[in-house]
Design a protein around this nucleic acid. Sequence first.
DNA 1: TATGAATGAGTATTCATTCAT
DNA 2: GATGAATGAATACTCATTCAT
Lengths: 164, 164, 164, 164
Amino acid sequence: MAALELFANKGYDATSTSKIAKLAGVSEGLIFKHFESKKDLLNALMKDAESKLAEVWWEVMEEENPREVIRKSINLPFKEVDPSEHDFWRLQFKLKWDNEYHNPNKMNPLVDKITAAFEALNYPEPEKESSILVHLIEAISIEIVRGDAASQKPLQQFLLDKYK
Amino acid sequence: MAALELFANKGYDATSTSKIAKLAGVSEGLIFKHFESKKDLLNALMKDAESKLAEVWWEVMEEENPREVIRKSINLPFKEVDPSEHDFWRLQFKLKWDNEYHNPNKMNPLVDKITAAFEALNYPEPEKESSILVHLIEAISIEIVRGDAASQKPLQQFLLDKYK
Amino acid sequence: MAALELFANKGYDATSTSKIAKLAGVSEGLIFKHFESKKDLLNALMKDAESKLAEVWWEVMEEENPREVIRKSINLPFKEVDPSEHDFWRLQFKLKWDNEYHNPNKMNPLVDKITAAFEALNYPEPEKESSILVHLIEAISIEIVRGDAASQKPLQQFLLDKYK
Amino acid sequence: MAALELFANKGYDATSTSKIAKLAGVSEGLIFKHFESKKDLLNALMKDAESKLAEVWWEVMEEENPREVIRKSINLPFKEVDPSEHDFWRLQFKLKWDNEYHNPNKMNPLVDKITAAFEALNYPEPEKESSILVHLIEAISIEIVRGDAASQKPLQQFLLDKYK
DNA sequence: TATGAATGAGTATTCATTCAT
DNA sequence: GATGAATGAATACTCATTCAT
């Protein structure tokens, strides 16, 4: 959608409803028939963030074999997605900087899953191992949704080997 | 300065020049005597980013001993700084999302230095090792300037041990 | 009707067609099937003002006995009416302030009838007597439709005595 | 002022800030440097209503002789005023219909003063006499500020004689 | 150096009205 | 007869910027 594209690229505050309307090819008034306010439009866009995260994490979360949990986690950022999805995720990461939208516990389920995997594999400090791996997954994801997949690709195999 | 505080907390677009003036306790007109435009004010704030980076990296960059390079790099995010500096760095990281201000090569000197260190230590894939360590350093820095130093602190010793 | 209630309470300009539609429980489009425009809706509401006035005045106008004319005129504002009618009359009085709807001759028939009565009773200045009594009738009516019947009630008998 | 003129003639809701600005020959923005909001502008206009009322009533209120109190009260609506003042008073009367601005006790001081006068003159029902006279004064005032002074003028002497 | 009055373009949002279904 | 999607113009208000003092 037009709003998603603009919010993701210019930011929420720098995107006027008139620009959204123009890009979407509709009248400005129509936006406010669909959404109570500009903020509400953003909220609607963010609404399915949780379910989308769950969907992306699905493969990891249902995995029982700890070694596979690690492997699949590392692969997460490298999944090929419809590039239009990048807008969505870019907006997600951007809003981490907006206190109103930042939920520091959002990654917890994944962190816990990976921690359990490291535990099962008898790593001496599973929480810290997990914390670091999740940092890496996020950092790589950010570079990729920002458009720099090429520079990150080589890290995939490298990490897979490292954590084998 | 007032502008830095507001830009860092609310974002550039959500911060009006009138709010800056009010918080700074000066007239709105005065701002435009000092800076040509609001953008110019932001630029001035960002101006010393490079020199500040260099300053922060100084210890690392002048180090000759590769093992020490790694150690000092890991310690970078944990340096105690005047908390007012957090505004500055928070703004830096925030603007990474603004294409106009994002310079993907900003980290290069540090990356190169760390790569050379890993090379000297005969790591088989020094570039990738370096790339990953820098990702971690950035990820940890972000959490810290966002206000969550506590959760990151334990990672310091853990990383120091891991890379010893 | 919903429009009458809103026009009478909030005023014509402060009442949007969407609020009317919502209160009436119909679609906004429907309003414009029934009325050409918002103004036309107001006109329709005002349409029967004249006939309603005539109806209210009926008792007075058909009276032959001058003393009875005066008595019945004084009683006019105190007639018990369906309180939903207050919306109608409140709107009437409110629109007196709108030049487009103010008709300074609206009261003429009543004024003339009362003047004739005072004449028949040999009052020396029947026009002025009439003018004043009509002022009083209107002033009392206004207070009553505005919701303050209690404070006006005592004036009824007082005036009846005064003009006996 | 421009706002007063428009509010008095078209009504508060029917008067846009852009029309006010245009009539006043200033930019729309300037209005909001002087007043926080359109409502605040109206409030500012109404602010001195009380002091103006007191000023107009002054002659009556300070009078000791009851006969003179009545006489001066009757004369109140007929005082020659700068016709620009009519805008002010027209707005006052108009806002009586706006619950937010209607203060039913506004007339109390005058009512009380006149009641006392009728009492001193041994009228049997001073409150009702007062109530009626104040109704008349208001009704006449309304006609005059609405622009119909001519039709009301003859009532002045008539009332003076009646209450002598 | 500093103020504060002034502005034109822009903001989110609401409005009365239209029209295809 | 009725709906609901759609719109262009208007609304109250904010913005970054200018300039006389």
